[in-house]
Design a protein around this nucleic acid. Structure first.
Length: 273
DNA sequence: CGCACCCCCTGCCGGC
DNA sequence: TGCCGGCAGGGGGTGC
């Protein structure tokens, strides 16, 4: 479901509802997520206060007052929302953290179970350090040089490079197509074939596209909702994603859809020739 | 090491 | 109406 902007919107909407709250009780479903639900690990959360909500790329985490950290990946269909304890528990709910002295609980729902929700501690940076820089948090000259070098030395297509979270974190299938359109670069061009000028355009279009999506509350076309259960408005602002057959907003040529590395890519062959 | 390929899983939609 | 294939904001493992 979610790319960096959607996960950031979830983080921002959950923050006021969770920060400073203590966990009263924990409920876990029986089905495994990607990694397994390790039930005994969740027991440590009871009584701990949520002191911080962090994010890097598509990875979200909650930090607790006695050192625990819940690492959460939403996969394709994961939804993390705060709802009343009384509201009906929908199918595919895997985790419920009831808050103390409050009618609310945090729920993790994920039909396809491609997501993860597991407990570690705040000193464990392994998942975070595996990722490249996130263009919506820091995007220093040094980080941009590092990303540019990764692109320049790769023989993969630029679209596939952008989806690699180890190169940079937070871009997924929507924003890869969108960033390449803004930068006027063909998604099929190999990284090593790109000029310095093209790479520079891309390094500036990526944070631009991601920041705009955050302002609009993320892109919802199917499952994605924020921490309050509300859809994002950014689908109304995308230029090429899911717009095959429609005129290119720049040149009026027909937008195309093609499969690339098993995923759909949307582009204008005239603007991105 | 990089890179093609395949898998994980449910739901929905269109075609027959 | 039902069945089947294809497809969906992700990511990891395998084998060459």
């Amino acid at each position: 479901m979610p790319e960096g902007p959607e996960v950031e919107t979830v983080r921002r909407t959950l923050q006021p509802l969770l920060l400073g709250r203590r966990v009263g009780s924990v409920w876990l479903g029986t089905q495994k997520l990607r990694n397994v639900l390790v039930k005994q690990d969740f027991a440590v959360l009871v009584g701990q206060e949520i002191i911080h909500l962090g994010r890097h790329g598509k990875l979200l985490w909650l930090d607790f007052s006695r050192g625990a950290r819940a690492l959460i990946r939403l996969g394709m269909t994961g939804r993390l929302t705060v709802t009343s304890k009384q509201s009906a528990v929908e199918k595919h709910t895997h985790v419920r953290l009831a808050l103390k002295d409050n009618d609310n609980e945090l729920r993790y729902v994920d039909p396809r179970r491609f997501g993860e929700f597991f407990i570690t501690d705040q000193s464990d940076r392994s998942s975070i350090d595996k990722m490249g820089p996130d263009p919506t948090t820091t995007w220093t000259a040094r980080e941009q040089t590092q990303v540019a070098q990764s692109i320049k030395k790769s023989s993969r297509s630029i679209k596939e490079i952008l989806l690699d979270q180890q190169v940079l974190a937070g871009v997924g299938n929507i924003y890869a197509s969108e960033s390449l359109f803004i930068a006027k670069i063909s998604p099929f061009a190999n990284g090593c074939s790109l000029s310095a000028a093209q790479i520079n355009r891309l390094l500036s279009s990526i944070p631009q596209v991601l920041q705009a999506a955050i302002v609009n509350g993320g892109t919802s076309f199917s499952d994605y909702v924020d921490g309050n259960g509300k859809k994002g408005a950014n689908i109304d602002f995308v230029q090429v994603f899911m717009r095959q057959g429609l005129p290119c907003p720049s040149c009026k040529n027909t937008i195309e859809k093609r499969t690339q590395g098993g995923r759909s890519t949307y582009f204008c062959c005239k603007c991105q020739g």
